[in-house]
Design a protein around this nucleic acid. Sequence first.
DNA 1: GTTGTATTCAACCAGTTAGTTGAGCAAGGA
DNA 2: TCCTTGCTCAACTAACTGGTTGAATACAAC
Lengths: 123, 123
Amino acid sequence: MADDQLSRVFAALADPTRRDMVARLAVGDATVGELAHPYDVSVQAVSKHIKVLSDAGLVSQSRDAQRRPCHLEAEVFDLMTKWIERYRQQAQERYERLDAVLAEMRGDEQPTHPGNREQGAAS
Amino acid sequence: MADDQLSRVFAALADPTRRDMVARLAVGDATVGELAHPYDVSVQAVSKHIKVLSDAGLVSQSRDAQRRPCHLEAEVFDLMTKWIERYRQQAQERYERLDAVLAEMRGDEQPTHPGNREQGAAS
DNA sequence: GTTGTATTCAACCAGTTAGTTGAGCAAGGA
DNA sequence: TCCTTGCTCAACTAACTGGTTGAATACAAC
């Protein structure tokens, strides 16, 4: 699966059960048992899912007696959104330039949004 | 791997080679051969990667003689960002409430920075 | 100390994945 | 027509995944 964090985060969220757990943890911290409850798989399977999320840095666990409460580490999401946004924007700008070219080819003197297209925005 | 699109998109991007290809395609369309060139794996392997991206809806292919140019379908990214943003925000709001509670417990009348802190990505 | 509860570790199994090689197909050019 | 190019399909393999069960660990409570 490749050992970089971005790969681990994407892989972790590729499973609907784990996305479910993230959704649950967004509401509030929960123990392994609590997380396991809604599903009809073994607690061990859930524990494994949590390990995957935790290896990806999406979840951290503390200790409270026998319990190991899980906590969502939402900052890791930024890693993904940054990656996604970067290439989404890049592609989008390309389409906009294409639009402009097509408009020009039509002899359409006014490019969709003057000054807005044409790179630059790259922030 | 679960057959819903969100799972397929996350799974597709869990591979660094495929993320690389997406990055390449964000610059401009490319044929399978062009995409294969930088890597020392077989063209067949690359073709498989493209199939994965294409099944996820991230890439589409047209025909130009023998060539099958690949095109990045950036809108699918929105599916992910929406999912991510939803839970990131939910978690963040929870932390802010917690902050407020802690501040109150300290007798600190002013919660750090109402609504401002860290955020940024919200757009 | 023994028992009970919450969780993880270890070993195993079936299904999937990422790669391989070899063959096949579609289109353009000799 | 035959050959070459660009790509995909098919079959195989090694490694990984998501699940299982059973044993081990950590702590609390009796």
